[in-house]
């Protein structure tokens, strides 16, 4: 099977039952993506597929051949941290650091959803052209990513500060 992960083309011969999460961790050694529940309840395994966030534990690897997969390892460029990663450090948006890669990937996927006007449970006017981004809107949209250490305040601060600088993902049909 052929995969495109963090811009690199990778081959693997894996069991059809292998989840995308186990593919990343056990076969490609990309252990930045974390396993917290393996049933879609905690968000620690969040990765970006064509710019959209998914729980990689609920995805079968075989279905994601050829799709553009971005993990936390793919966010740094030439060893430099992404502005959101920097902001997580500055605002202490983590303690143990285990849910952190998932929080960061999730926030980047969320930025895309906000800009494309996808409403949420707390959006006051679901018909509005643009979403008003506030504390509640970010909290609601990040609620699929659990942080048991309780670094939530720092996470929201880090996301709020950098939201404007998160680039839009490349289009799905990009090479």
């Amino acid at each position: 099977m052929q995969f495109v992960i963090n811009g690199r083309s990778l081959d693997a011969d894996v069991d059809l039952r292998t989840s995308l999460l186990d593919l990343l961790r056990d076969h490609f050694g990309l252990s930045g993506t974390k396993k917290g529940c393996n049933q879609g309840a905690c968000g620690a395994c969040t990765v970006l597929v064509d710019g959209n966030r998914i729980n990689s534990c609920l995805a079968l690897a075989v279905q994601y051949q050829g799709r553009k997969i971005t993990t936390v390892e793919g966010l740094t460029s030439n060893g430099a941290l992404h502005p959101l990663q920097e902001a997580f450090v500055a605002h202490d948006g983590f303690q143990c650091g285990y849910c952190t890669p998932g929080q960061i990937c999730s926030a980047i996927g969320m930025a895309n959803e906000l800009r494309t006007g996808v409403p949420s449970y707390v959006t006051a006017d679901v018909a509005a052209e643009a979403i008003t981004v506030d504390f509640d809107e970010i909290r609601e949209r990040m609620s699929g990513n659990i942080c048991r250490c309780g670094a939530y305040n720092g996470i929201i601060e880090a996301i709020s500060e950098t939201l404007g600088t998160i680039p839009l993902p490349e289009a799905k049909d990009a090479p």
Binding site: S31, K35, L81, V89, F94, G97, T100
Partner: peptide, 21 residues
């Protein structure tokens, strides 16, 4: 002071028990 292990953790490079080859 910001966490000295912060850059490792946000980059997904901090290695946990199930991640040692």
């Amino acid at each position: 002071v910001s966490r000295i292990d912060g850059p490792l953790k946000v980059a997904g490079k901090a290695r946990f028990a199930a991640e040692f080859p």
